[in-house]
């Protein structure tokens, strides 16, 4: 049996094949490069978002005591444009009783052995060989006005709190009623609800402010905020408002310096990075670093316990 003669590729054949391959590969390679670049961009965003999520989650957790956060303690970091506010840092202690030195809180922002990794003065965390700047701003809700803290007065409920100038917590005190001056007891038509010392009586307020309801079971709670609000006083209580609308401001002096330390804080976490391969050239805004921000709030839910 004679073996079939196998001819090899000719030089011309190879040249033609290579030319075609180059024609195909050029756009394919550029497409792959674009794809890889896009992939890097997306991965860097996923990591950045996760990082900000993780940092904020840990700041909000109960493992980070409220008072361990020093709102403007990190002077070397980039200040916020708005108000040139410095970044936060962690304290080792607060007042005579609160010691956080063994809490290792700086590790949340990438510190090793108590020392941050810094880039241009900002704290960085390396993820996926990318350097993420982690910036955190914090501010505590305290009484405004020249920075003077609100000092506790004789009223433990701080009823002199001013809405809009400090964080207040509003509520109505419990309803009460004046037995001797109630429409139900001393009913005589017409029972003038507006001038009668008739309190909000939950026992008899059955029909709300339904004008068609019998007067003795009608109790118009909406008058608390209406034109009759100031007319309704507790008998014998002077000018104290009958339906007490309290604006409570919390006063928590945890470091025992006589000033309000606040109990509620705004937190802003910013993460800034440069995706690999996006540093030079690129389209749109790709030459600039990418940024992602989160805003949240942390409350002191532990009081003075820690």
């Amino acid at each position: 049996m004679v073996l079939k003669k196998q001819k090899g590729f000719t030089l011309i054949e190879i040249l033609v094949a290579m030319s075609i391959l180059i024609v195909f590969l050029l756009p394919v390679v550029s497409l792959f490069m674009l794809g890889a670049r896009g992939n890097e961009f997306n991965t860097s965003w996923q990591d950045g978002t996760k990082l900000a999520h993780s940092v904020m989650n840990r700041l909000l957790s109960e493992d980070v005591p409220f008072t361990a956060i020093d709102p403007e303690g990190f002077g070397t970091g980039t200040s916020a444009m708005g108000g040139s506010r410095a970044q936060m840092d962690f304290r080792d202690s607060f007042g005579p009783n609160l010691d956080f030195s063994d809490f290792n809180l700086k590790e949340i922002l990438g510190a090793k052995n108590g020392a941050y990794k810094l880039l241009d003065g900002d704290r960085i965390i390396v993820k996926g060989r990318r350097k993420y700047k982690v910036m955190v701003w914090a501010g505590i809700y305290k009484r405004r006005g020249g920075g003077t803290a609100l000092t506790r007065g004789s009223d433990p409920y701080q009823s002199d709190a001013t809405k809009g100038e400090e964080l207040t917590f509003s509520y109505f005190v419990n309803p009460w009623f004046d037995i001797s001056n109630d429409c139900v007891i001393s009913y005589s038509a017409p029972c003038d609800e507006d001038t009668k010392n008739r309190p909000i009586d939950p026992y008899t307020q059955l029909a709300g402010d339904d004008p068609g309801a019998p007067a003795h079971i009608r109790n118009d709670i909406s008058k608390m905020n209406g034109s009759n609000f100031s007319d309704r006083y507790r008998p014998g209580w002077g000018t104290d408002i009958r339906i007490e609308n309290k604006d409570f401001h919390n006063f928590e002096d945890l470091d025992e310096d006589g000033t309000d330390d606040g109990a509620y804080m705004k937190l802003v976490v910013g993460v800034q990075w440069q995706p690999k391969g996006w540093g030079k050239g690129g389209s749109g805004g790709s030459t600039k670093p990418q940024e992602f921000y989160l805003v949240s709030f942390k409350a002191n839910l532990q009081g003075a316990k820690r």
């Binding site: 708005g82 108000g83 809009g164 100038e165 400090e166 207040t168 509620y264 921000y293």
Partner: peptide, 23 residues
């Protein structure tokens, strides 16, 4: 009553101070 505000326009923020803006 402008106590807690999240606003990217500059404002006087009770927590962050004057002229602050949120992201």
């Amino acid at each position: 009553d402008d106590e807690v505000v999240i606003d990217s326009a500059p404002h006087d923020d009770l927590a962050m101070g004057n002229n602050w803006f949120d992201p």
